[in-house]
Design a protein around this nucleic acid. Structure first.
Lengths: 198, 198
DNA sequence: TGACTGACAGATATTGATATCTGTCAGCGA
DNA sequence: TCGCTGACAGATATCAATATCTGTCAGTCA
């Protein structure tokens, strides 16, 4: 079957993910990937200049796929506060689900992401932009009182780091993890509220 | 000189810190510590049941010493909001200074702290208690509107993790680190404010 | 008597010889 | 011509033999 399919970057990435899943990050070699593709490892280097760049591309694919639902929430309509909370909870939930479902795979992803810090940085910037977009909507709706949208978006991202940054993943199984998320989100959303007489 | 001084846990801890500083965490052995103390390594085991417990004790000493100024701020008087901000900035500043002054030593401390997670947990609980204390004062002063003091204190600790948790230390050299701290603290302090007509 | 020593067993780290991997490239075959 | 192969050099990982370390304890000495 492999024989009649041309060798494309996309196909290499698919097979690389599979090899990573089977062998683990430490054991997976370019030779393994080439063997799974039924080509020589020289051919893989025709499409990716180095093993590092191959891994980087895999990391990017993973990040994009995992966080696709977030863009949708950011673009949706309705009251911004509820949307922001939904977005933040979704981001936290995605990470938490990943680490609970398949911790070994998550460790692989984590190590990959640490290498590919350029890719991760770009990804984070996109996420912060999505928060910015919701904040802008909220300001227009009169629900949020935000001076510097961009800085505030980053502040929200930073303040929730403990719940979405992989370095903290071993703390997510804490029995009152959910309560701690609730407490932080409540505090942050209150800090954004436009002042009103009560 | 060593000969006329009795072997006490405190003296062992002092010398152990020195050995760690000179040899690094990976290379420092109980035999090294004993040699520096001019005793056999068996004697060290008379005061600490294991190498792990010795390291734990060193970690505790470090944590207590480094964060002593925080207790003072927590206990001081004056308006709670300013005090809380001072306390949080002090906590962040202590960590940041440590990593900037002596990154190698900080790495040692970090590895030690990761092993001695029980000690670290107790330490964190003490810090959260200090925040709670300030929040209580703020509530009494009418400056803060806080439903669950304990949960809110922990939320403040969690929300600032990015700026004080060692796992993020490599991000503290970011050129707009200070601006990010400002943005998060502003958001959090606004979230605590008692509502008032404006 | 009680703090300390030093030899010991089992666990862990180091070392150097060997094997595998990464990245390149001249040449093959469609 | 152009994508692919497979041999190669240098870098990296593995493995087993050796050395060092941890933790114990019977025995020494003040």
């Amino acid at each position: 079957m492999n024989e009649n399919v041309v060798l494309t970057p996309e196909r290499i990435l698919e097979v690389t993910e599979d090899v990573l899943r089977r062998f683990g990050l430490a054991k997976a070699t370019v030779v393994d990937v080439a063997r799974a593709l039924d080509v020589s490892h020289g051919s893989v280097y025709r499409h990716f200049p180095s093993k590092a760049s191959l891994r980087e591309a895999v990391a990017k694919r993973w990040l994009d796929r995992a966080n696709a639902p977030l863009a949708e929430i950011a673009e949706s309509s309705g009251p911004a506060p509820a949307r922001l909370e939904r977005w933040l909870r979704a981001m936290i939930g995605i990470k938490c689900k990943k680490v609970c479902d398949d911790p070994e795979m998550f460790a692989t992803y984590l190590a990959l992401a640490q290498e590919a810090c350029k890719v991760v940085k770009a990804h984070k910037d996109r996420l912060v932009d999505q928060i910015s977009h919701i904040l802008d909507d909220g300001a227009k709706q009169g629900a949020f009182d935000v001076a510097d949208t961009k800085a505030t978006a980053r502040a929200l991202f930073d303040a929730t780091s403990r719940f979405h940054h992989p370095a903290h993943s071993d703390e997510w199984s804490d029995p009152d993890h959910a309560a701690r998320v609730d407490a932080v989100l409540a505090l942050l959303l209150r800090g954004l509220e436009a002042p009103r007489k009560r």
